[in-house]
Amino acid sequence: MTNHVALQMRGAAGGVLAGVFAVVLLATGDAAGQAAGTSSRTLAEICALADQGDAESQYLVGVLVRDGLGKPPNPTEGAKWLRKAAVQGHALAQYHLGNCYVNGAGVPEDKAEAVKWFQKSAEQGTAPAQTAMGLCYTNGIGVARDAAMAVSWFGKAVAQGDAEGENNLATCYESGFGVPKDLGKALQLYRKAAEKGWVMAQGNLGVYYESGTGTAADLVEAMKWYLIASAQGDEPAGEGAKALAPKLSAQQREEARKRAEQFRKASGVK
């Protein structure tokens, strides 16, 4: 299966400067609209507020400088601003600073320091940080491996509808890691994550439907999910679709294609 339980920085947030600074934090797992109220401020105004110690502005500057804004990315300077906001208790800055430390982006790689900042953010209810804590406990990153703690943190993220948390908790139920093995529950969680656009879950769902794991086998539905995932670059899903295609009739392949297209149109997934 294409299960992924690996800690990595989620797609970096970006912004666009076109006279007026528009803040749109959509990737990274941040809740969209965290920066509501700042969209009418110019970049100069946000930088001035950051210099004055405003935590939200420091966070925004940190993310934008780290990822680049009309200039090459500057992870070191970005991490500096994220730290300024993080020490003031800014939850998203704490999460991003944890990512900096786990990846050695702009700071020396330090897994224990990453866990410290992830936990501060997670305890404030940041779902991506809760998922990150689950991954740390799953893989023994900066902490001792602990299945029960991993499941606990994944569960907190799932309660907030975090797609990565749903995918990772599904893998726990699939393997019996920290919970009794339950393939039906794994299927439910993969489906929730897949419907939110989480690519790994989409590929996993294809495997479940093809093999009849946790549900009755449905090769057309399997092909549908393989097509959706592979269109977003999931190579194992592409291989799954290629291997499954000869087992389907032309009519079934067309039905799978239609279902995939309907999902993409309804969900906005490319």
Rank of each mutant, 00 (worst) to 15 (best):
G15W: 01
A13L: 10
R10I: 06
Q34G: 00
Q52D: 12
L26I: 08
V16L: 14
D51Y: 11
C47A: 14
T38N: 08
A44N: 13
S39Q: 04
A13N: 03
A27W: 09
A48V: 13
T38Q: 05
V20C: 08
Q52R: 10
G15C: 11
V5R: 07
V20P: 01
A32S: 13
L17N: 13
T28K: 01
E45W: 02
Q52L: 10
G37C: 07
T38V: 04
D54M: 09
A50M: 06
A31R: 12
G29M: 01
D51E: 15
Q52Y: 06
V5M: 10
A50Q: 04
A48C: 11
V16D: 15
I46F: 02
A44C: 12
A27K: 09
T42E: 11
N3H: 15
V20R: 12
R10N: 10
T2S: 15
Q8T: 10
M9P: 09
L43T: 00
T28L: 06
H4Q: 15
A50E: 05
N3G: 15
D54N: 12
Q52V: 08
G53F: 07
A18Q: 11
L43Q: 02
T2W: 00
G53E: 06
R10P: 07
Q8R: 13
G14K: 01
A18I: 13
V24F: 09
A27Q: 13
V5A: 08
A44P: 05
A22M: 03
L17A: 09
A32F: 14
